[in-house]
Design a protein around this nucleic acid. Structure first.
Lengths: 228, 228
DNA sequence: TCCCAAAATTAGTCGACGCTAATTATGGGA
DNA sequence: TCCCATAATTAGCGTCGACTAATTTTGGGA
């Protein structure tokens, strides 16, 4: 009775498209061609062409000039890739001495090559983690994810104390900097002062006072108190 | 002064071709088109075409209608892939609970996706092993391999006692069978009797008497006494 | 309402790498 | 020496997935 059998394997390209379309779908509605092109660093016509193929394959629905949305099957495939990616990140950090700024690139290539079996072995070896080193939740093998709600640090009013939940920065340099000042998932942060007009934010982390830019503060998603 | 810099990355196909050409070169002279086609399960014309491209790239030398030989650069690339493959096999067995009959397929895909850095981290985590689970020697990162000399069990005269060094069978079923009777690298084997005309061979392994077919005995490469 | 810039799509290429069918080279008997 | 089976190559084609240039659609001012 298993419904998910003979999906002929997706290509690397297709897997990448599905992943970014899923991620775009989390922040708004239908993903625009230009958004996809930008994320994948491809030309818009390349994306148009692939979108047509993918919608013919039933992985997404395309309303010309409007945008694109994953079908149930497309979403399943996307979540499978995201699970792989995040488990790989966990494994590389926990077992092979990678730092959180270096894992993304490695996982990005490996996620297309590992078997489901290997992914599950790695997950098991780590005790089935629920979040990757950046705090991103790991979908289950069945394709279920908890949508962690969290507020960018940039929007927390002065005086409040919050916990860093997810760090959405991708750039290794930024990640290294954030780690160096203790701004990692789990860190407790108190907002001391906020300058207007997207100005810098003063905060206390690990007993230290720090000032960080607005842009960086946007990438730190926070919540109140203990883990969700 | 490092000579090995801007090699634009090789494709998966190219990596596979180089690997099988290297392996063929170990057992004879120039690899024939049909040998390559057979190993890669491709048509002969596909191989002819690729061989042309590879020789234009300077990865091998092709004498039409004669065969193919790796250049120094091609050999370096091939050994790099073989190192990756064998370290991956070691790691999967040692750290992720794989059995030796299951690692090949997984490593076959991963070898194209791992970075040099990851390979070296895995090797280090394992204490820089010198042979994979099948007893095949692992080339160094600099591209050096010890050519283990060993004799097929099928050619060992009755009465002699030898050590299994390498198991060249690839088929998972055969590997499982061999493991089940203790015929793995490191095993000590005494040949009791050999039937003529490629007949079965009677031997003692782990205190047990066994009879195995000639074909299987061909894939067990043995040497005398302690490790090389 | 009209117009136009931005976004998207279509048209037309290209390279990598498969394939089948047709052709050519090679080398071992008779 | 000639002939022919086998091996190899060439010819011609298809698909995937990228690209640039040209065209079309869309939606927001003036």
């Amino acid at each position: 009775m298993s419904a998910a059998i003979t999906h002929e394997p997706l290509t690397r390209s297709v897997e990448d498209y599905l992943k970014v379309i899923y991620n775009l779908s989390l922040e708004g509605r239908a993903a625009a061609t230009s958004d996809i092109a930008h994320r994948l660093e491809l030309s818009a016509p390349s994306v148009s062409g692939m979108v047509k193929r993918l919608s013919e394959q039933g992985l997404l629905e395309h309303v010309p000039y409007k945008g694109v949305q994953l079908t149930v099957e497309g979403r399943r495939a996307a979540l499978r890739m995201i699970r792989r990616h995040r488990i790989l990140e966990c494994y590389l950090v926990a077992r092979l001495g990678y730092t959180w700024d270096a894992v993304h690139e490695e996982a990005e290539r490996l996620e297309h090559a590992v078997s489901d079996g290997l992914v599950e072995r790695m997950a098991e070896a780590l005790g089935n983690p629920e979040a990757d080193p950046h705090g991103e939740p790991i979908p289950t093998a069945e394709g279920w994810v908890e949508e962690v709600q969290a507020t960018p640090l940039a929007e927390i009013p002065a005086g409040e104390t919050v916990e860093v939940r997810r760090v959405t920065a991708g750039d290794p340099d930024r990640l290294r900097y954030l780690a160096s000042v203790g701004l990692q998932p789990g860190a407790t942060v108190t907002v001391i002062e906020r300058q207007p007009f997207s100005g810098p934010i003063t905060l206390r982390v690990a007993e230290q006072e720090r000032v960080i830019g607005h842009e960086l503060a946007e990438s730190l998603l926070c919540g109140r108190g203990h883990q969700a």
